[in-house]
Amino acid sequence: MSSALNIWVRSPDTRSERRFERHVTVANLKAKLELITGVPAQNQRLWLHNSESEDAPIAELADDEKMLGFYATRDFQMIKVEDTNPSTSFTGQLTDVSQVEKFEMTDVEYAQRSDTVMAYKSRHKMGRFADKSTEEDGQTEAQTQKVDIPVGSRCQVESNEPGLSKRGTVRFVGPTKFAPAGVWVGIEYDEPMGKNDGTVQGEQYFTCKSNYGVFVRPDRVQVGDFPEEDLLEEM
């Protein structure tokens, strides 16, 4: 029997799959979970669930001296991290955008700018600024594009930031209502680096936690054996 377990970890702001040794103590486990969830070890209350889909816990990991294996923990069970004192941590602040000041611009102000997407499309005769025949040809080519990206496969998304690897799971492949033509790939990131929860403009294409979902063009997606990166190993 392997000494390492694959365990789902859930907290108010995170959801990820991790590997922990059976002989790790609850105290040491809390220290590791602090780096993953942002919840201070002293504020953590840990609950063991049979799976992600079961709300009722089967045990509380209440004894800091006990080892994880003491609770007969199995692969793909879930540890739910409860923050007993969220006022001293960042719990909930990563997903709460109610306090973020919004930048707003009128349509007239937007149309007068030369550094916008609309201005770029106008200069290059793209989208609604394109000649009708050119636009129709482009849509036909995009609609018939064949994409070999299976739903459910692991992937890595091209990033403009050096050293940043955005990994996740493909949840959707196909046309969308938020774009006039072409194939889009919906991805659930391993970490909250996305822009939505799988819903765009009121249309639900897949389901995930807020800020874990994103839609990108197929040419930015690389499918392969991309396991979830272990933050603890990198540190």
Rank of each mutant, 00 (worst) to 15 (best):
S3W: 05
V9D: 01
S11A: 14
P12F: 04
P12E: 02
D13H: 05
S16V: 13
R18L: 11
R19H: 11
V24L: 12
A27S: 13
N28K: 10
L29S: 06
E34L: 03
E34Q: 15
P40F: 04
L48E: 04
H49I: 09
S53I: 11
D63A: 09
D64W: 03
K66T: 04
R74L: 13
M78I: 13
I79C: 02
I79W: 00
T88D: 12
F90Y: 08
G92C: 11
V97H: 08
V97T: 10
E101W: 02
K102V: 15
D107V: 06
Q112G: 01
S114C: 02
Y120D: 14
Y120F: 08
R128G: 02
R128A: 09
F129G: 04
A130K: 03
A130E: 07
T134F: 08
G138D: 03
E141C: 09
A142F: 07
A142C: 08
T144V: 08
K146G: 06
V151S: 05
V151I: 14
E158C: 05
S159W: 03
E161D: 08
P162S: 05
G163C: 06
G163N: 04
V170W: 00
P175Q: 15
T176R: 02
T176D: 06
A181N: 10
I187C: 02
Y189E: 00
P192F: 00
M193F: 12
K195C: 10
Q204H: 09
Q204M: 13
K209N: 11
K209L: 13
V214W: 00
V221K: 04
V221N: 02
V221T: 05
V223P: 02
G224Q: 04
L232V: 15
